[in-house]
């Protein structure tokens, strides 16, 4: 096989719209194009460059960015002040030391200090301890009651994933389905959780799995669980199609 395509030529080919045929040097690029036909590596490179060109062209030359209104930053500060009260420990300084509180400047030139952020800084040693996945901090705190028995989710043909699903009552969201799946395949899309009737004909989408394969999803009481006892996790693409893809990874049933 000849040498790989010169990166500048590859860039040129990626930029070619392929519909005008007017690019003066298309004859010069005949050799590289022949090489591309037989070299998966160069085709991979080209594909990646084309994705960039497509993104840039769909954005347009002066694609404006939308600055968030000032109130967004203000409510971030407010939220940190009310929702993250300083965690007191013997080793922690009192949060309201004035030298610290004045250090935060809001993004657009104001001088509003944030006591909570300063306090958080002092408490940062506490927050960083342990191996808690970062997204665990995000979810609203909820306590679960009447936690039911875990039901096994078995792999579907061609998959090695497995997991558990259980029902519980959440203080924050009412009835919830707590689901955990291990060994999820590596995919481009996302995983959707469904409740199905035993015949597998009728489906209710419950929500998406988190990237760690876990989710606690509300199941409103209007959903008649005995009629939809099967839990199914499917691979979905971001293709605008809300229907079940037909590609299931694990499945189990909530009764018995």
């Amino acid at each position: 096989m000849a040498d790989h395509v010169d990166p500048a030529d590859l860039a040129e080919i990626a930029l070619d719209r392929g519909d005008n045929g007017g690019r003066g040097n298309s004859a010069r690029l005949a050799g590289p194009r022949l090489h591309l036909a037989v070299c998966p590596e160069c085709r991979g490179e080209l594909k990646a460059l084309r994705a960039v060109v497509r993104a840039a062209r769909s954005a347009g030359p002066g694609d404006p960015m939308t600055e968030p209104p000032d109130r967004v930053w203000r409510s971030i500060q407010r939220e940190l002040e009310t929702a993250d009260p300083p965690r007191g420990t013997p080793s922690c300084q009192p949060p309201a030391a004035p030298t610290v509180t004045s250090s935060l400047r809001p993004p657009w030139g104001g001088h509003r200090p944030s006591r909570a952020l300063a306090a958080l800084t002092l408490a940062v040693g506490l927050a960083t301890g342990g191996g808690v996945a970062w997204w665990a901090h995000e979810s609203r705190p909820q306590t679960l009651q009447n936690v039911g028995a875990p039901h096994r989710l078995a792999p579907r043909p061609g998959h090695s994933a497995s997991g558990t699903a259980l029902l519980a009552d959440s203080s924050a969201e009412g009835r919830v389905l707590q689901i955990t799946v291990h060994n999820l395949p590596d995919i481009k899309g996302y995983f959707e959780v469904w409740l199905m009737d035993p015949a597998g004909r009728r489906l209710i989408p419950v929500g998406a799995l988190g990237e760690d394969g876990r989710s606690t999803l509300p199941v409103p009481h209007v959903v008649d669980l005995p009629a939809y006892p099967v839990v199914d996790v499917s691979v979905q693409m971001y293709d605008g199609k809300p229907a079940h893809s037909g590609h299931s990874v694990v499945r189990g049933t909530l009764v018995g």
């Binding site: 960015m65 968030p68 967004v72 930053w73 250090s103 935060l104 993004p107 800084t121």
Partner: peptide, 21 residues
């Protein structure tokens, strides 16, 4: 990573528009 709140504000200035867009 050090929990510097001034830096957090700078991060918001740098990426706020991108995230919001």
């Amino acid at each position: 990573l050090l929990g510097d709140e001034q830096v957090f504000a700078a991060i918001y200035r740098r990426w706020g528009a991108m995230v919001h867009t």
